[in-house]
């Protein structure tokens, strides 16, 4: 029945699959609950246009602004509330400039709960690594199944920043421990920042991965050694002390590592 309704509404639109202007409000309500997020999006947009056409038009037109760091964001409440999500998604799909897609992704990531499936799909299709590194922040918020899918995408990303962001964001989930299995392989990632993020998150979620962390205490990167030691300390304090002593980490050339080792051994 729902399929027929969609077909009836969308087929006449031909070139514009989103033309739901002839749909009744009741029909839109049904479509806005469709399992297919693209259908939901079209219906939600049409609802937004009918409910507040001016606001929707403004959201469609608003330009992001340069942050102090130089990249773009939407520094306005108007684009950071749940009912802005359909416009954000629509613009994201049709926007060609990655800088603007990044700004849209920033808002979307926080408003992603009802659109988790959309975010996962957009993440998979997004060509720009910076945009992906922003979009993956949805990992903090979305339900576990979609979060798992997003983590899989993120940890397999070709770009190290995306992989590192994904790994660090798992630490922000209350069920982050459930994702530890996705992080352990990242301890051997060729990129230093990924090894750091994976170690930090494994320490925060207190995953039982002490053995996997120990090799990182001899990593060529002092930052990796630092965060591996800290993670190990959070997981198993006595083990961290034992390793700090065995590896003489108080003599590490990096003052941060030696200071941490000193603190651990001093307890």
């Amino acid at each position: 029945m729902r399929f027929l309704l969609i077909l009836a509404l969308l087929l006449p639109a031909a070139a514009s699959a989103a033309d739901l202007s002839t749909a009744t409000d009741a029909e839109l309500t049904v479509l806005a609950a469709d399992p297919d997020w693209t259908v939901r999006l079209d219906a939600s947009l049409e609802q937004a246009l009918r409910t507040d056409p001016d606001l929707t038009a403004r959201r469609m037109a608003i330009a992001p602004r340069a942050t102090r760091a130089g990249f773009l964001r939407f520094p306005t409440q108007m684009m950071n509330v749940p009912d802005a999500a359909p416009v954000l998604l629509h613009r994201f799909r049709t926007e060609s400039a990655p800088e603007v897609r990044g700004a849209l992704a920033d808002c979307l990531s926080r408003l992603s709960v009802p659109w988790a499936d959309a975010v996962v799909e957009l993440m998979a299709d997004e060509p720009d690594a910076t945009v992906r590194s922003i979009l993956v922040h949805a990992v903090r918020f979305i339900p576990p199944p979609q979060a798992r899918a997003l983590v899989v995408h993120g940890m397999a990303d070709a770009d190290a920043v995306v992989r590192a962001e994904t790994a660090s964001l798992i630490a922000r989930r209350s069920d982050g421990l459930d994702f530890a299995d996705a992080l352990v392989p990242a301890l051997a990632d060729p990129a230093e920042r990924v090894r750091i993020s994976a170690a930090r998150t494994l320490g925060t979620v207190q995953a039982d991965v002490s053995e996997a962390l120990v090799p990182l205490l001899s990593d060529g990167s002092s930052s990796v050694r630092l965060h591996a030691l800290r993670a190990l300390d959070r997981i198993d304090g006595p083990r961290a002390a034992e390793q700090a002593r065995t590896l003489d980490l108080v003599s590490d050339l990096d003052a941060r590592v030696s200071r941490l080792a000193d603190r651990i051994l001093g307890r």
């Binding site: 409440q77 950071n80 918020f141 922000r172 989930r173 925060t204 965060h227 959070r234």
Partner: peptide, 24 residues
Amino acid sequence: RQAHGFDTVGEIVDDNGLRNLNQD
């Protein structure tokens, strides 16, 4: 909620990842 994804003060307080990040 709008800018950082926290609905309540308790959500900030209970965010262990955030707590560890700041300690680090």
